[in-house]
Design a protein around this nucleic acid. Structure first.
Lengths: 141, 141
DNA sequence: ATTGCAGTCATACTTAAGTACTAAATTCTT
DNA sequence: AAGAATTTAGTACTTAAGTATGACTGCAAT
């Protein structure tokens, strides 16, 4: 890395020296218009600046969250129903069976049915595992 | 945005014209050495290039995953012990109290003690909530 | 029409989770 | 060394979670 930087700067210095020489020489050669040489030099120098700027400036670092998209195919393949998915999401939100029932206006015993069916489909034994599995398989966000 | 860009380029053109004029003039004024003017011009042009490069070039973007670092300060402030933290992590991994006990070679009743103490410190009622809260507060990864 | 799925609910049960203490041994800390 | 915090473990209990099974309804496809 250090060698690369040194090499780069060496090349830049050589390029600059050549330009200066050319610039000086042109003043005494009438065949080439001085303006053209100056213009060319300007363009080369600006290009050099742009090149240097790209390397000197530290890159912008932005944090990106992994794309949180549900895998609808997986949900279908596991034959998880819409209601079951709702319950699964609420389990993941930390709600108890009773709270889920209240939120969905259905009895706790129905929630238990959904939960049991979910565990079979997700191949887990506990709700904490269900949450992990469901996120692994991108069934819930 | 368009106006801003137009203005910027206008200024750049004016700056260039001034430089060209200066450059031409200096050739006939012996008081100022031609090399100095050329050198100054070079510096200005390179600076201009760097400035332009910063605006024209699309920024280098490095994508990084959100930093998953435990907040040790938070752990201390909540007075969560090392053992409790271990238990918390294993809860988050989906293990039952019994499984956690087996993994740590201690009785399930001890796990229950740790769990209860954790719930008070995390201000939650259930282990599913504990996992959510612990991740919110970056107590576990 | 009947077949099947989704959703609902209930009962009865077992197991796990969680609470509320008490208490002892161990390990830091001062 | 003394005190504080941690870790361990127990008992006794309450509550929540989870299982198994059966039953009823509505709805859509065959």
């Amino acid at each position: 890395m250090v060698v690369k930087t040194a090499l780069r700067f060496g090349l830049i210095i050589i390029a600059l020296l050549i330009l200066f020489q050319l610039s000086n020489a042109s003043l005494f050669i009438p065949d080439i218009p001085a303006d053209a040489v100056i213009g060319l030099t300007a363009v080369v120098l600006i290009a050099l600046g742009i090149y240097l700027g790209g390397n000197i400036k530290k890159p912008k670092v932005i944090e990106v969250k992994p794309t949180l998209v549900k895998d609808e195919e997986k949900i279908k393949s596991l034959r998880i129903s819409a209601r079951e998915l709702e319950v699964l999401q609420l389990i993941s939100d930390g709600l108890s069976n009773q709270e889920i029932g209240e939120k969905l206006f259905i009895s706790e015993s129905t929630i238990k049915t959904h939960v049991s069916n979910l565990f079979v489909k997700l191949d887990v034994k506990r709700r904490t595992q269900a949450v992990i599995r469901a996120k692994e398989w991108r069934i819930i966000v």
